[in-house]
Design a protein around this nucleic acid. Structure first.
Length: 414
RNA sequence: CGGGGGAUGGCUGAGUGGUCGAAAGCGGCGGUCUUGAAAACCGUUGAGGGUAACACCUCCCAGGGUUCGAAUCCCUGUCCCCCGGCCA
């Protein structure tokens, strides 16, 4: 959530920054006005409450002294009505304020390039040369068919379209990759955590999926529970409503979870193959840091994911996302795109974001710094989408006959 | 899912209508003492809002209600514990 006080104090610069993400200045203006209105009502309410407290104390005293109460009683009753009216007014204002504020995306960092779509993302670096193929490389679904690794039809039968089952080496490599990634992350100082695969609405509000993106989530009927769209949700919410000790930061976590997404807005995109599924495995990195630590930790997380790809021999590039292409909660995002020779394209395999204090404000994740509570910074990043890594291995390690070599790094895990 | 009992500050735990944001103990922090440490003693120690700083407001699981006044009484929900059922 944006900081309303920042909007109040620093309207021009906040508005200019958010314009880069297509946020209308008028909605910010409305927010600012509402916020000021709310503060005024709150002040009047508190004054009335103070009065009520004072009179109530008098009431007890008068009674003990046996004095006449009728005058006081009348005043107290009148004031009570005023409090009720102000309370209602405040409640309505707060409701509207929250509704508006929770729909505003994060403010982009100054070093995030302008731009509206992925076309304008900035390529930072390419790592590893794509291999030259003496034959025409196949796409992963062809390879999946030849090797029997991915069963698309039966996945659909069990659930629906965009579900699949992994079989034979495919299933084993998936599991090997998860183990390999977790070990790799652990060696980089991330604590392995095992978390619930469902989360309640408060958690999803905390990380920014709710209320705006409810359509992308699978909800459990009759329960305040959703299937998690990413481990970022449970990992970050581990510390929701907590005040951490500064010396415990940074907290760096890694976790494997399946992720569940409706992919509501992507009808017709990547319908073939395993690029875009309703359920996919991911190993995630999450860090909780102080404001001062977060830039350094961000770089560490990007390196961690990039080095992991390198260790698997997968060519990839680092993309700095432009303002218009970033996710709702992010102040800055670097995507890693892996080379898929079958498609002849770089495709997203990891996305690392610094949300600064945007999620922390929603989720009330704070730390104590010399007596003062400060909002933490939260960062998240895929240390690779596992299914897409499997695909990348298939396409990059394919042989002319359609068989697939196992990357050196994974051999001990199979 | 059925029956019973609970939910209070970092923790344990008292408080059943007024001066209670809350006793006491533990823990934490600061100090006295000590070469140093321990012990002992003294002080301090919840969160959010608000203020230049005070004042002031809110919070004793959450939401509603009764009352001039609620941690305390009533209703609903959530969670936890015990017993039974089911079950990896």
């Amino acid at each position: 959530m944006v900081d309303l006080r920042q909007i109040e104090k620093d309207f021009e610069s906040v508005s200019a920054s958010l314009k880069r993400r297509g946020v209308d200045e008028k909605s910010l203006e409305r927010l600012k006005v509402l916020f000021e209105e709310k503060k005024g009502v709150q002040k009047r309410l508190e004054a009335a409450q103070a009065e009520q407290n004072r009179m109530s104390r008098l009431f007890g005293q008068y009674k003990r002294e046996g004095r006449d109460l009728s005058q006081l009683q009348r005043e107290v009753a009148e004031n009570k009505e005023r409090i009720a009216a102000l309370n209602e007014e405040l409640r309505l204002l707060e409701e509207r304020l929250l509704e508006l504020a929770s729909a505003i995306p994060n403010i982009p960092d100054p070093d995030v390039p302008d731009g509206e779509s992925e076309e304008e993302n900035l390529e930072l670096e390419r790592i590893l040369e794509p291999r030259e193929f003496p034959f025409t490389p196949k796409e992963h679904w062809e390879l999946a068919e030849i090797n029997g690794w991915i069963d698309f039809e039966r996945g659909v039968k069990i659930a629906k379209s965009r579900f699949s089952a992994l079989r034979y080496e495919g299933a084993r490599i998936e599991r090997a990759l998860i183990n390999y990634m977790l070990d790799f992350n652990r060696s980089r100082g991330f604590e392995e955590v095992c978390v619930p695969f469902m989360a309640n609405s408060e958690s999803l509000f905390g990380t920014g999926q709710l209320p705006k993106f409810a359509d992308d989530l699978f909800k459990i009927e009759g329960e305040d529970l959703y299937m998690i769209p990413t481990a970022e949700v449970p990992l970050t919410n581990l510390f929701r409503d907590e005040i951490l000790k500064a010396e415990d930061l940074p907290i760096r976590l890694t976790s494997y979870t399946p992720c569940f997404r409706k992919e509501a807005g992507s009808a017709g995109r990547d319908t073939r193959g395993m690029i875009r599924q309703h359920q996919f495995d991911k190993v995630e990195l999450v860090s909780i840091t102080t404001g001062a630590q977060s830039d350094e930790i961000f770089e560490e997380m990007v390196s961690c994911a990039s080095d992991l790809l390198t260790s698997l021999g997968l060519p990839h590039r680092k993309m700095l996302l432009c303002a218009g292409d970033m996710g709702f909660s992010a102040a800055k995002t670097v995507d890693l795109e892996v080379w898929l020779p079958g498609q002849g394209k770089y495709r997203e395999i990891s996305s690392i974001s610094n949300t600064r204090d945007f999620q922390a404000r929603r989720a009330k994740i704070r730390y104590k710094e010399e007596k003062r509570n400060r909002l933490a910074n939260t960062l998240n990043g895929s240390s690779l989408a596992v299914g897409r890594t499997l695909i990348a291995i298939m396409e990059n390690y394919q042989q002319e006959d359609g068989s697939i070599l196992i990357p050196e790094a994974l051999r001990d895990y199979l």
